[in-house]
Amino acid sequence: MKYAMLIYTDQAAESSRTAEEQQAIMVGYHGFTTEVREKDLYKAGEALHPTTSATTVRVRDGRTVTTDGPFAETKEQLGGFYILDCKDLDEAIEYAAKIPGAAHGSVEVRPIVIW
């Protein structure tokens, strides 16, 4: 069963981190990615540029309307994701808790639809 692990963190807080702090988090992500790859759970995983680089697209009455930035102002923003193949929700929760972002932000675990 595939689960998307959507990592939400506070971007503003991230920009005020020291280089060492940032480095420690990167090491954490590297370790996590290595672990889930070795256990053959890893399907995909990407980090996203900050929401300041985002463009929101809507099509209304056949016209494409673009907006600068994300569609909603929230305290935490989607900063990256993993797609992991887990046995069940318990295993998914176990790995979600190991994602470094879970320690300061939050990780939303969403099962992926099988068509």
């Binding site: 069963m1 046995k87 069940d88 929700l89 318990d90 998914a92 675990v109 099962p111």
Partner: peptide, 14 residues
């Protein structure tokens, strides 16, 4: 069903 919450007795650590 959708999130596959397991139908089992949790392991000792949980």
């Amino acid at each position: 069903r959708d999130a596959r919450i397991p139908y089992e007795v949790p392991t000792r650590d949980r």
